[in-house]
């Protein structure tokens, strides 16, 4: 039976993060109880058979007109910790518009909505784990976590991977954003290399002339424990 490796220490944030205020009353304070991985944990929802609409991975073509903002391509590969591609898995993303406003009834930031931008997309990775979206660069926006708090521009990503235990929701950031060092959500990730993993890289190969800048963002899901067969060196 397949089982999945314990995450390396420092990869993920702790639940209680003093700098991120909402964690104070939402983080569990009792230790988690470790349970073995059974059929319940190593199975999981597989979405690969669900049809994806033609414009699901192009957030600039989901409305009557074109959205405001800087058109970008976001692409990369979904892998596991051993570098194995994760094929045919659902990638969902959502984001605010170029002005930093989400299409959500509770987002009261006084920045304009864009009638031509929803901000949600879906794609299925190909046989090599690759995905690709066209969207616009999201804006930074303020939040009320602390005085003069601003979230760096980011895109939310949601992935299932092959099992219940590989589920991941994360955020992709942009390189050289001056707000990155001040963000308590990114900053809650202890390991510097893990924080760097959340920052996309500008990619000339993805960039399309006279059309859109390209950003590369690989997503690494939890790897499998080695089986005795693999340990024997084959």
């Amino acid at each position: 039976m397949t089982t999945y490796r314990t995450p390396a220490p420092g990869t993920h944030p702790e639940y209680l993060s003093p700098e991120y205020k909402t964690t104070h009353r939402r983080a569990p304070l009792q230790p988690l109880i470790r349970i073995p991985q059974t059929l319940s944990e190593i199975t999981g929802p597989l979405y690969g058979h669900n049809p994806i609409g033609e414009t699901d991975n192009d957030l600039t073509r989901q409305c009557a007109g074109e959205p405001q903002g800087e058109r970008i391509i976001v692409a990369g590969q979904v892998l596991d910790e051993d570098g194995r591609p994760v094929p045919r898995t659902l990638v969902e993303l959502w984001q605010c518009n170029a002005a930093g406003r989400y299409l959500h009834s509770k987002d009261n930031h006084p920045a304009p909505l864009d009638a031509n931008f929803i901000g949600a997309g879906r794609a299925i990775t190909d046989d090599h784990g690759n995905y690709r979206f066209t969207t616009i660069k999201p804006g930074a926006y303020p939040w009320r976590n602390h005085h003069n708090a601003w979230r760096p521009a980011h895109i939310h990503f949601s992935l299932f991977g092959p099992a219940f235990v590989t589920r991941l929701i994360t955020q992709m950031f942009f390189p050289n954003d001056p707000l990155l060092p001040f963000d308590p959500i990114l900053g809650a990730v202890p390991d510097a290399r893990a924080r760097e993993r959340l920052v996309s890289s500008f990619d000339f190969d993805l960039t399309e002339p006279e059309w859109a800048l390209g950003y590369h963002f690989d997503i690494v899901l939890r790897g499998k424990n080695a089986t005795p067969f693999e340990e024997s060196g084959t």
Partner: peptide
Amino acid sequence: MRIATASQTVGPFFNFGLTAN
């Protein structure tokens, strides 16, 4: 071995991306 992608919060404004259906 590659370092895994860290988890981040779903935030408050996920409705139109994840739970519209």
